[in-house]
Computed example of a mutant assay.
Amino acid sequence: MIRLEHVVKEEQKMLPVPVKKEITPAEVAVINRPMIFGKLGQIEVPDGAKEQLDSVANILSSYPDVNILIIGHTCDIGSQAANMKVGEARAKAAAAYLVSKGVAASRIETKSEGEAHPLVPNTSEENRRKNRRVTIVLQ
């Protein structure tokens, strides 16, 4: 005679075990790629950055436990205080865009590094343009 508790235990063994999906290196590369804001003082998300942020939002939708830090950067033109404000505004603009695409605000932290960590030396206008950016880091 088969006892009911043996049947239940056997059925529990056959239940699928959820597999935690790992974020791939290619997805990390998309998330970590700097988004150039380009224009001096620009805080609105540029069209080219919107395409990348769309990709980031799509990736994050597959990983609901992943949180991000968005960091705003500037070139060296302007005061340190003003650059900190511009960097923060850029980070918040990128965060707002991601929220508009369905990423929970609770998963996003923002900060500014102003001019403190240039991507390239601020020795030309082209380099300064590259330093006016937002970066995203997985947390």
Rank of each mutant, 00 (worst) to 15 (best):
D54Q: 11
K50S: 14
D65L: 06
E51P: 04
A57L: 13
Y63L: 05
D47Q: 13
E44P: 11
F37I: 14
Y63E: 05
D65Q: 01
A57H: 08
I36M: 09
I59T: 07
K39E: 15
P34F: 03
D47N: 13
V45W: 05
F37Y: 15
L53R: 04
K39P: 06
M35T: 01
I36T: 14
F37P: 08
Y63H: 04
V45A: 06
I36D: 06
I36R: 08
A57G: 11
E51S: 00
Y63F: 09
Y63V: 02
A49E: 06
D54A: 08
A49N: 00
G48S: 15
D54C: 09
S55H: 12
P34L: 05
Q42G: 10
V56A: 05
V66H: 01
Q52E: 14
G41F: 07
E51W: 01
P46E: 00
V45C: 07
L40W: 11
S62F: 14
F37L: 11
D65N: 02
I59C: 01
P34Q: 04
N58P: 02
S62H: 14
F37T: 11
E44A: 14
Q42K: 15
K50T: 09
L40Q: 10
F37M: 14
A49C: 08
S61Q: 09
N58C: 04
N58M: 08
E44C: 10
S55V: 09
Y63G: 04
L60V: 07
D47A: 13
D65P: 00
I36G: 04
S62P: 05
Q42F: 09
Q52D: 12
G48A: 15
D47G: 08
G38H: 01
S55I: 12
S61C: 13
I59G: 06
F37N: 10
N67H: 09
F37V: 12
P46R: 00
P46M: 01
S62C: 11
L60I: 02
E44L: 11
E51D: 13
L53C: 00
A57Q: 08
D54G: 08
G41D: 13
P64Q: 10
L40K: 14
